[in-house]
Structures are given as structure tokens and as C-alpha cells.
Nucleic acid binder design. Structure first.
Length: 312
DNA sequence: AAATGTTTATGGCCGG
DNA sequence: CCGGCCATAAACATTT
């Protein structure tokens, strides 16, 4: 029996679904988002099985990216030239996999509809974005240098970092990366309903920054009024006028056909809007949620504000 | 043109 | 058996 953590599958097909493989790839990089080609690369690097029949499985993988709500598309900024968008995990899909294992999913993640929660006017969304950016900036300025080293995902979380599910991401991608803080995917899931705290993760894996990063040479301009924290053009956010923009915003419309369901919350913790690109490997920002209404440990007990659901 | 994304269809597997 | 999840194929459309 091959051991996944050692990548000894050789030619055998790994026991992971495309969703799992894609989630691994996305989780493996500090930005928590990857272009399609990098997802391909990640999979092919680690699983020789996928070095053949690329047309077949890549078609399937693209199908999964588009079809599953747990993946969201994040457009490139103009200073990030390249083909295609970035793909990220939907913030609300953190508990997709049981116990941090990528072997099986819990429930199908489905995003819900929430037109009523969106800003009524595009200008509102723009204003909201600006506020988020300012909050984030001030939070970073206030806390950038002297933050409690809460060891990223262990902050306030009782979950001991010693247990690592054999199929947890850190054991899967550990071939190249060692996680200082002992970050387990299962640990992350226990936080904030799986909200990816990009800055903290990057702090936890500073050494990964230059090894797996797509764009290290693109400092984000926080002063820009055209782009949100995630590099999502405000214009693209507003045209739909159905989502709030402080988190990676899915380009694809939320399934409005689902009756009585809602997707995005009226309020999003400010720490969610921290920009991955704004982080520097040499000056890690351990910005905690200064302007956030809830600490990670609090969000443990509170239901996620993001109203997505695991349809079952 | 090739890469990327979207959508529909079909069939297998598995658990309730 | 039925429904959910998954893999695969294929026909597009869009973007670079």
C-alpha cells in the first residue's frame, strides 16, 4: 500500500478525486490561489500517474473547476500577465474534507444565492472595498511588527497540532515543504469555518514563498481604487451586484436558481480581505484580525457568516 | 491556434 | 433502488 505522504504512488492512480487534487494544489501555495497551469504542474509533479493522458484528466479537472462551487475564479490584475484566471477555494468550503483528509469529501459544497445581501449600488460596493482596504492597511500598520507569535493556525485553537491526519495536506505536500507551525488542514478547518487566512498562512510557511509562488514581483497597490484586496476588479464585482467583494469573488454567478438560499454575508470579517500579494517573505505580517469582530477562536464557536452550505 | 472555461451527458460506484 | 459523488467525454465559448 503506497503511502501518500511519501508520494510513492508511482504509476498508480492516487486515491484522490480531482477536487481533492485541486484543493491540495491550491492549499499548497501561500496565496491560496493558482492558475490552471500551476494546478496541472502541482499534480504532475507529485503524482506520476498524471503525467500521461494529460488531455483526458486535464479536461476532467477543468470540468471540476467550473462545475464545483467550491472553486472560485479570481481574475488577474493587469500586472499579473498570463493566461487564465487564478483558482481558489471558496472561503466557505473549508470543511469539505473530513478530518483534513483529502480522501473523501463530507458533503458537496454548494454556494447559495443572496441577491438581497449585495450592495444596492455599484458605488456601494466600491466604497465598501475602499473601506476594507483602509481597515486592512491600518491594521497592518498597527500590528505589522509586533504581533504575538501565535503560530498561525494554532492561535486560540485547542486543536493540538501534533495530530496530523495521514492524508492531511501537510503530509501530502510535505515532500518539499516542512511546516514549522505544524499546520494541518484539519486545524485550519477548525478555524473560521475554513476561511483561508492568507497572511497567517504565509507567515507560517515563509520558506514556501519563493518556491511555489506564482507572482512574487507584483506588489499590490493598496491605494488603487480599481482593485480590491484580492485583485478583483471592482468593475467585475459590481456588474453582478450580487456579492460582496471583500473575499475572492466568484466570477460565475451564484446558482440563483436555488430557492430560498443565500450566498454571501452582509458583513465579512476584515481579516478576510488581507491581500496575499501584499505580503513580503522578509517582513511577514502576522496581522491578526484587529478590525475583525471575531477572533479565530471565537469564530470557532460562531457559525460562519458566509452563508454557503454543504448541500446533501 | 492553443489554452482556458462552461456546460451537458453518461455511466460507475457506493451507501442509505 | 435511488440519490449523491465522481470520472470521463464532448461540444462548445472565451481569452491570450
Amino acid at each position: 500500500m503506497p503511502r501518500p505522504g511519501r508520494n510513492t504512488y508511482s504509476d498508480q492512480k492516487p486515491p484522490y478525486s480531482y477536487i481533492s487534487l485541486t484543493a491540495m494544489a491550491i492549499q499548497s501555495c501561500p496565496e491560496k490561489m493558482l492558475p490552471l497551469s500551476e494546478i496541472y504542474k502541482f499534480i504532475m509533479d507529485r503524482f506520476p500517474y498524471y503525467r500521461e493522458n494529460t488531455q483526458r484528466w486535464q479536461n476532467s479537472l477543468r470540468h471540476n473547476l467550473s462545475f464545483n462551487d467550491c472553486f472560485i475564479k479570481i481574475p488577474r490584475r493587469p500586472d499579473q500577465p498570463g493566461k487564465g484566471s487564478f483558482w481558489a477555494l471558496h472561503p466557505g468550503c473549508g470543511d469539505m474534507f473530513e478530518n483534513g483528509s483529502f480522501l473523501r469529501r463530507r458533503k458537496r459544497f454548494k454556494v447559495l444565492n443572496a441577491d438581497s445581501l449585495a450592495p444596492s449600488k455599484p458605488s456601494d460596493a466600491a466604497h465598501y472595498l475602499q473601506q476594507q482596504a483602509k481597515l486592512r492597511l491600518s491594521a497592518l500598520a498597527a500590528t505589522g511588527t509586533h504581533l504575538p507569535q501565535m503560530s498561525s493556525y494554532n492561535l486560540g485553537v485547542s486543536q493540538p497540532s501534533t495530530f496530523k491526519h495521514p492524508f492531511a495536506i501537510e503530509n501530502i505536500i510535505a515532500r518539499e515543504y516542512k511546516v514549522p507551525g505544524g499546520l494541518a488542514f484539519s486545524t485550519m478547518q477548525s478555524m473560521s469555518a475554513g476561511y483561508p487566512l492568507h497572511n497567517q498562512l504565509t507567515t507560517a510557511w515563509p520558506h514556501m514563498y519563493n518556491t511555489n509562488v506564482i507572482d512574487t514581483a507584483a506588489p499590490i497597490s493598496m491605494a488603487s481604487s480599481d482593485y480590491s484586496a484580492y485583485g478583483v476588479p471592482i468593475k467585475s464585482l459590481c456588474h453582478g451586484a450580487q456579492t460582496l467583494p471583500a473575499i475572492p469573488v466568484p466570477i460565475k454567478p451564484t446558482p440563483a436558481a436555488v430557492p430560498g438560499l443565500s450566498s454571501l454575508p452582509p458583513h465579512i470579517p476584515a481579516f478576510l480581505s488581507n491581500s496575499p500579494q501584499s505580503l513580503s517573505p522578509t517582513s511577514p505580517q502576522t496581522a491578526t484580525s484587529q478590525s475583525s469582530p471575531a477572533t479565530p477562536s471565537e469564530t470557532l464557536t460562531n457559525p460562519p457568516t458566509l452563508q454557503s452550505v454543504a448541500v446533501h
